[in-house]
Computed example of a mutant assay.
Amino acid sequence: MWRSRAVLAAFASLSLTVGGAQAAGAVGAGEVAPAAPAAAAGSRAVGLPPVVSHVPTSEKVVFITIDDGWAHDPGVAQTLVEQRVPASLFLLPGAFSYDAQYFTGLVEQGRSVNVENHTVNHPDLTALDAAGKDAEVCGAGEQLAAAFGREPKLLRPPYGAVNDDVRLAAKACGVKALITWTHDFTTWGETPATPQLNAGDIVLLHFTPTLGADLKRALDAAKAAGLKPAALMPHLKSAGLVK
């Protein structure tokens, strides 16, 4: 199945003009690249899923997203469930597979907690050929659908690395939007400065040993700005970014 999708993607890419919707590559040990332009508005490619780093909205909301899935802190799950925090979890299959119940419990008990695609092996997708992109994106989507009973529709490209070939491969795998971020609240070595959050911002966190503290900083920053965490997909639809 994925081989045929890869061939189609490679063929289509021959006529694709690469647009301006690109996020920078990795910087340092963590995903701290600058966010991609919202909705990839400057791209000349037509019909490809948008790249979204910020959701245009008049509502006082912010979006919590958490990547990878390696650290399974019960306290974090308790916070998400008891405080009814909507969150998008961009999981790696290998990171959730050894304790899938941790995440299935979050989805079942949480308020608007959804599992989304972060590829199989966390590569820079821009460095792969069409077959490699397809194996990473479609392969992860299939594993997540099997584990959680829902096909993910959002993709977080590792390191925020995106070009139109990546968007084309994502579309072939059923992805509706590629989600980067506005602010990274992850502690990479030392606690980063806490930014001022604005309505529609996308907060990036990771399932690391510091997630409990990082999540608290993000929720406190949202509260200080008069914002509430909200489910991402409904607001992407309201903004006309996905159908």
Score class of each variant (00 low, 15 high):
L92C: 01
L92A: 01
G94Y: 04
A95S: 10
A95H: 07
S97L: 11
S97K: 12
Y98P: 14
Y98A: 12
D99N: 14
D99H: 09
A100P: 08
A100Q: 14
Q101M: 07
G105L: 06
V107F: 00
V107T: 13
E108Q: 15
E108T: 15
G110P: 11
R111I: 04
S112K: 11
V113I: 15
V115T: 04
T119Y: 03
H122I: 07
L125W: 05
T126F: 06
L128N: 06
L128P: 07
L128H: 06
A130P: 05
A131L: 15
A131N: 10
G132K: 05
G132S: 06
A135N: 07
A135W: 05
A135T: 07
A135C: 02
E136G: 03
E136I: 00
G139L: 04
G141M: 01
G141C: 02
Q143M: 11
L144W: 03
L144E: 03
L144F: 01
A145C: 02
A145L: 01
P152A: 12
P152F: 09
L154V: 11
L155D: 11
P157H: 00
A161D: 13
N163R: 03
D164R: 04
D165Y: 09
A169G: 13
A169P: 12
A170Q: 08
A170Y: 03
K171F: 07
K171T: 09
C173Q: 10
V175R: 08
V175H: 10
A177D: 15
L178R: 11
L178D: 13
L178A: 11
I179G: 14
T180N: 14
T180G: 10
T182R: 15
H183D: 14
G189T: 03
G189Y: 01
E190R: 12
T191H: 06
T194K: 08
P195L: 08
P195T: 11
Q196I: 11
Q196D: 15
L197Y: 02
N198L: 13
G200D: 12
G200S: 08
G200K: 05
D201F: 02
I202Q: 04
L204F: 02
P209A: 01
P209K: 00
P209R: 00
P209D: 05
T210C: 02
L211C: 05
L211K: 01
K216S: 12
R217A: 10
